[in-house]
Design a binder for these strands. Structure first.
Lengths: 226, 226
DNA sequence: TCAAAAGTGTTTGCTATACACCCATGA
DNA sequence: TCATGGGTGTATAGCAAACACTTTTGA
C-alpha cells in the first residue's frame, strides 16, 4: 500500500490540473474543442482537454502538453484564465484546476484524440453537450474573457492564419460580437491600429475581385490598444 | 516517519497556497500590506500575507482566512488575480500559489501581525523592501491589474469608506494614475456613472466649505462601465 | 452581363478635454 | 479678511457611427 502511494506529506495536498478552453472559428461560427473522457470519473462524458500537473513542469507547459497529448494541437496562443478550486468539484480528491484560454487559427489541421481522450471534436459554442466537472463554468468564464478583450487588445487576430484579408478579420469580429459591423468603419479602425501590414499579395477566392492579404506586424504577441 | 507524513498519494502533489496583495491609500500615497515572515524559508523577510490551502476550504476562503490570521483584516474586497507556479519558486517543495488582489478602504483600523507573521506593516508601493519568493512579481501583476481596471470598472471605489466626498474620490484616482485630473471633468464623469448618490449629509473638515457626502448605489459590487 | 465580395470618404453626433470663477467655512 | 478646498458650465477637438457607390473577378 505504501508502495502504491509513495508520495507522502505532513499535510494533505490537493492535486493540481490544467484545463484548456480552446476556441476556433470554423464554418462561420465560434467553436470550442472538447474531448470525450476515456477514464472515470465522467467516463464517456465530454470535457475540456487537460490533466494533472507534473511535479517539475510549469503551469503553462502543462497546459500545452496536455493539449498536444489529448488533441494533437500545439503552438497555439495560450493565456492563463482563472483558477477553479471549489471543494468537491472533482469526486476523486481535492483538485485545483488552473484554466487556460487558447485560440486556434482558422485552417488548423483537424484534431485527433490521443492519450486518455477517447475522442476530440469541435463543437459550436451554442450547441455544447453536457460537460464533466465544472467545465461549463470554466467555458463561460473563458468566453467572457475573450469577448471582454476584443476591443482593447489584438486577441482576435489569433483566430487567423499568418496572412488574412480584411474581410476575414471583420468576419471574426462579427462572429465574436454576434453583430454586423460596417465595412468602411471596420477597415479604418483595423488599419489605424498599426498592428497589421499588407503583404503585397492578393488572394483570389470566388467570382469577385481578389482581396489584399495582410499579416500582423508583430506576430506571436497580443498587444493592448490605446 | 510514516506517522509524521500520513498523507500519501500515488503521484507527487504540489502544495497550494494563496497570497494576497492588499492595497490601500494612506497618507496620500498607494500602500501595500506586507508581513514579516516568522518562519523559514525567508524567515525575517517581508512577504505578502498568505499561506497553505486547507484541504476542505475554497480558494477565496483561504485567502480571506490567511489575511485575517496574519494581519487582522477582514471583509475586504477580494478578487482572484493569477496563479503562480514556476518550478523552484519555493525552496521547500513545489508550491502553486493562487494570488488574490485585495483593496482596503481608507480609515481601516491599523493592522496587527498574527499567526506566523512576526510583523505586519503598510509600505509605500514606491518604497517596498526586498521580498520573499516571487512576491515582487505578484505585486507587479497586481498593480497592473488594478490600474488596468480603473477606467472600465468601479474598482477604485473600494479604496473609500462607506461615505466619501467627490474630492476624496478624485484624489484616489489621481494617486492611482499618478497624474492630476481636472476637477470639473472628473465630477461630471463620476456623477454620470450612475454608481454613486448623495447621502444628503455634508462633512466639515478644515477651513473651507463643507463637502457633500456620497455613497455607492450598489456597495459590495464592482461594476463594469459602458 | 451578372453576381459577389473588395475597396473607398464624408458628414454627423457624441464624448473627452480644456479652462476660471464664486462659495462656504474656520482661523 | 484670508486661506482653503467645494462647487459649477461652456466651447472645442477628436473619435465613433452612419451611410452608397465603383472595382475586379469568374462564371
Amino acid at each position: 500500500m505504501s508502495q502504491a502511494k509513495p508520495h507522502c506529506y505532513t499535510h494533505p495536498h490537493p492535486a493540481v490540473t490544467t484545463d484548456i478552453a480552446v476556441f476556433a472559428i470554423r464554418d462561420d461560427a465560434l467553436h470550442l474543442l472538447l474531448i470525450r473522457r476515456g477514464n472515470p470519473p465522467f467516463e464517456g462524458a465530454w470535457a475540456l482537454p487537460g490533466g494533472f500537473l507534473d511535479i517539475d513542469e510549469d503551469l503553462e507547459t502543462c497546459a500545452a502538453r496536455e493539449l498536444a497529448e489529448e488533441t494533437g494541437l500545439s503552438g497555439l496562443y495560450l493565456e492563463q484564465l482563472c483558477t477553479f478550486g471549489a471543494v468537491g468539484r472533482d469526486p476523486r480528491e481535492r483538485v485545483i484546476s488552473v484554466a487556460y484560454l487558447a485560440l486556434a487559427p482558422a485552417g488548423e489541421r483537424s484534431v485527433q484524440a490521443g492519450d486518455d481522450a477517447a475522442d476530440a471534436r469541435w463543437f459550436r459554442l451554442d450547441a455544447l453537450p453536457a460537460l464533466a466537472f465544472d467545465h461549463a463554468e470554466i467555458i463561460a468564464t473563458a468566453q467572457r474573457r475573450l469577448v471582454g478583450k476584443l476591443d482593447y487588445s489584438t486577441i482576435a487576430f489569433q483566430f487567423l492564419p499568418e496572412t488574412f484579408t480584411l474581410g476575414e478579420l471583420q468576419r471574426v469580429y462579427e462572429i465574436l460580437v454576434d453583430a454586423e459591423i460596417d465595412k468602411r468603419n471596420f477597415r479604418k479602425w483595423a488599419l489605424a491600429l498599426e498592428q497589421i501590414e499588407a503583404t503585397g499579395e492578393t488572394r483570389r477566392h470566388g467570382n469577385h475581385r481578389p482581396a489584399r492579404l495582410y499579416r500582423l506586424t508583430d506576430r506571436e504577441r497580443v498587444t493592448y490598444l490605446k
